[in-house]
Design a protein around this nucleic acid. Sequence first.
DNA 1: CAGTTATAAGTTATATGACAACTTAAATAA
DNA 2: TTATTTAAGTTGTCATATAACTTATAACTG
Lengths: 257, 257
Amino acid sequence: MRQGGTDAVHDERLALRKRRPSLVDAACEHIRASILSGAHWPGSQLPTEAEFVDVLGVSRTVVREAVARLAAAGLVEARQGKGLFVSETARYQAFQITREEVENLSDVIQLLELRLSVETEMAALAAERRSEVDVMSMRQQLKILGEAAIGLDDSVKADVEFHNVIARASKNSYYAKLIDFLGVRLVPPRSLYLRQGQSYVGARYKAVISEEHEAILDAIIRRDPDAARVAARSHMSSSLKRHRDLQDFMSSHSPTG
Amino acid sequence: MRQGGTDAVHDERLALRKRRPSLVDAACEHIRASILSGAHWPGSQLPTEAEFVDVLGVSRTVVREAVARLAAAGLVEARQGKGLFVSETARYQAFQITREEVENLSDVIQLLELRLSVETEMAALAAERRSEVDVMSMRQQLKILGEAAIGLDDSVKADVEFHNVIARASKNSYYAKLIDFLGVRLVPPRSLYLRQGQSYVGARYKAVISEEHEAILDAIIRRDPDAARVAARSHMSSSLKRHRDLQDFMSSHSPTG
DNA sequence: CAGTTATAAGTTATATGACAACTTAAATAA
DNA sequence: TTATTTAAGTTGTCATATAACTTATAACTG
């Protein structure tokens, strides 16, 4: 029947309500706790599925799904014919940022602070290591950004891509990964600009951004790490200031105080 | 029988060999691809388990485990009686670093480069925002580090904690989260020092590190962001240089070239 | 005896069928 | 109309069986 049909998003809030913990949740927690408690060190063998079935009093299906979850999280590793093992990377939890955090403007500012530090050094590395192709890609994105009739979506896209190219030019894959990671997290707040009556997306705003981008690109072309650092810091600082101003504006005009 | 027994870690390398993709892996990839391709937007309903069984030609067990993995990764959400949905947070993938990456020394250097950028700005923020309690905590860790009879493990622990305190003092939770995340990833290579006959863990090495730490702490106490930035950069640069030297040493002495 | 192969046991991987719990829509009753 | 019941669809859980893989040991071979 597929009751949801085309009206799948009929109630957003319902999706966020707390569900009572399932058996799989419980099994998951049991195994995770037994690992984090230190009873099993990385690389050591865990009890078998059958043993978990006995201890937890659930079916093998439940145990297997719990293991699937933990394996997906990189906490355990199942080896056919051998058994279940604590992953060597068990302590390597992911760097995660939840949706709730991002939707809070003050968190966005904190993220921008983090991004500032990353972008400055990344620009410096890019200045040292960039290739000619990298420079061409940067020029291309800035050209797109400079076009008069560009839409907001395309504008954001080109902006993000410009920074991605710098990340790649740094020849350090972790910068690229982190910037990509932080990038999608910083897209949502742009809707805030729109709510403010597009006061920030006017021509003057565009010109300022453009100048900042050009300064970064210039430094990278000249292979001048220090100048690139300064330019990138300046760019991110302005971005940060704009967000801070917005935060002040909203907190002084919001009905909730 | 539990063949592994107490000898669970008998062959490290075996764990790293590529396993042929299981049916669950395939199913996982299929569903993930269908989401990332844009066919299903966040909040929309996915095909049912039964449909996946038909399309993929596998049992429900496989589909369920694949779903369990994707759910653990936060990509999908199963609601009993309703169906399978693309999670609202689907686009919020985690920033992950795998073990294979970390075990490569050149990757460690790349990570240190990333960390350098984070630490410099974090130290500057800490200088601006630190409380008296923060300063006390930093002093305490440096005092531990200065003790003569300290073991290597405790030394690493205090070192990590010192940087954690700075992260907290920055009053930006994302710095703390990221440093914590990167921190555990940078511990493994210390074993490399030991293999090199402890040439780097001598008294002179300790004195240099100590001076660098003191410089950072001084700047933070004086609430001097620029000085903190310089000191932190200097500290991380030296660390980076030590790793680069080690890399050169190993590549010129390794039997594989 | 040394080295190889065969066998058996333990383990995970997969398949199948069944029932319970939950959700929705339609049918039914007041 | 409104409320209740019913039926169908879906995920959650259980149980059983078989295949594939790994290891230790027994059996075999030279």
